[in-house]
Amino acid sequence: MASSIENNNEKLTLKSSDGEEFLVEKHVALQSTLLQNMLDSDCSSADVIPLPKIDARTLALVLGYCKKHADASSSKQGELNSFDSEFLKDMDMGALFNLVLAANFMEIKGLLDIAAQKIADTIKDKPHQEVREIFHVENDYTPEEEAAVREENRWAFEGFP
């Protein structure tokens, strides 16, 4: 998987931000609108396509997703759904952020949807203090400013400390 041996019409080579090369079957790569557009616009598949925003660990995950969805396009949706939820199951927040970023850059809508939804689900119905911890966000409000925002939207904070 690590390096390209040879290129033919069926395969192309992707290079991660940290220099690792991935040989990918063309029908798998077509899951990405970005790659599809590059291939349509006659960008030679013999070239190595650099993906400067995506590291090897993330790219391996993305390609795993693409392969499953490319191969299973004719099979049952239920099977894909269970693959999707299993795929994201134990992923930490950092990995999910990288995945969202990669899916957005490579324009893989299905992956962007499930990863963004997974992140949203982790903070659903959580008070804002917990959201800060989960997302590693520093509170830059003064206590007075925070109280003012809270007061303006009082109904939403019922039941929260």
């Binding site: 659903k124 959580k126 509170n139 939207n153």
Partner: peptide
């Protein structure tokens, strides 16, 4: 893309997370 998928109550609570 992420925050827009939340229910309205959580979205409003998120206004208190930070100024951004």
């Amino acid at each position: 893309e992420i925050l827009s998928r939340l229910p309205p109550k959580t979205i409003i609570c998120c206004k208190c997370v930070c100024k951004t």
